[in-house]
Design a protein around this nucleic acid. Sequence first.
DNA 1: TATTGAATACTCAAGGGGTGAGTATAAATC
DNA 2: GATTTATACTCACCCCTTGAGTATTCAATA
Lengths: 177, 177
Amino acid sequence: MSETLTIEYALLGFLRQQPMHGYEIHQQLTDSHGLGLVWHIKQSQLYALLSKLEQQGYISVILEPQDSRPTRKVFHLTELGQILFLEWVQSPVPQGHKLRLDFLAKLYFAHREASPLTQYLLTQQQQACQQWLITEQARAHALAPQQQFEQLVHQFRLGQLQAMLTWLAHCQEALLP
Amino acid sequence: MSETLTIEYALLGFLRQQPMHGYEIHQQLTDSHGLGLVWHIKQSQLYALLSKLEQQGYISVILEPQDSRPTRKVFHLTELGQILFLEWVQSPVPQGHKLRLDFLAKLYFAHREASPLTQYLLTQQQQACQQWLITEQARAHALAPQQQFEQLVHQFRLGQLQAMLTWLAHCQEALLP
DNA sequence: TATTGAATACTCAAGGGGTGAGTATAAATC
DNA sequence: GATTTATACTCACCCCTTGAGTATTCAATA
């Protein structure tokens, strides 16, 4: 599984709490709760992803017939899926555009489980950002004055990184046990 | 064409300056210049995109045989492509994760042409961000205190927006004619 | 001088992902 | 009684991406 596929991991995270059928997940995701705030996904895509995850062995399915409704496919997280999820949720997010989505997803699950993982995650991400900030600064310094556009790109990144770091510090305080 | 496909527009922007063949574009994009700094694209994808743009009538191709090299396909921007590009480069970027990539692309082309478009683009984007900031603030205020995660999400966005606005102001100064 | 590697320039088949549209039943609303 | 909405999932199409391949030439190594 590619490391940039946040949604798949998020699905594993949902199923980790309790087995669910596709329609149920979809409801939670489209509800105006914090979930739908971050992830946007169409129904057909959701079902496709669940099928894929099942084929890959990260989740398993149990059919649950009902009297007067279509049969449900209830998905359970497998041990393999459990391992994959835990690996993902603990690792800091590498730099890039998807940082926002990916890190917020991790934070969501860590926070939801009220585990000490939250502080660990925040610290790790802080360090990763700090590291990245340093390299960005170095690169920005190495630029010639006439490379104006390149300088602006780096300044943009530096600004976003600074804001991220400020926010991470705020999270640490807000989420103290 | 979907409005989120930055790379296609960027290709039109390149061809606007001068006709080029695929391999040439690829070289420029993978060079460590400011271009490769922002966009990452594989060779095969580049050729596929060029074909698509040609089929759609935004660029046209002229074959250029060579003595001791494979024939080149030199792409030219058509009038239709010109119009599409100018529309794109002038419109502010809507909120979202792709904001960074998309706006940097527009700025790149506006700046490269040293046109008054640059200041216009910056102002427009500032207004869009400011507007978005206000709605975000309103939403954040409307949250209950126990919706902790949701609050953090909004604070994150607010921080990024603030950083963006600071950066935009900096750009305006740096890019004064 | 032979051979390897890199550069030039583009093509293609295969696989994967996303989307609209569809299916079928039951409850709710008008 | 009729239409709309909710439940629950399926499917086929299309587009995009990508690895791998083709074929020639030049540079470099041995």
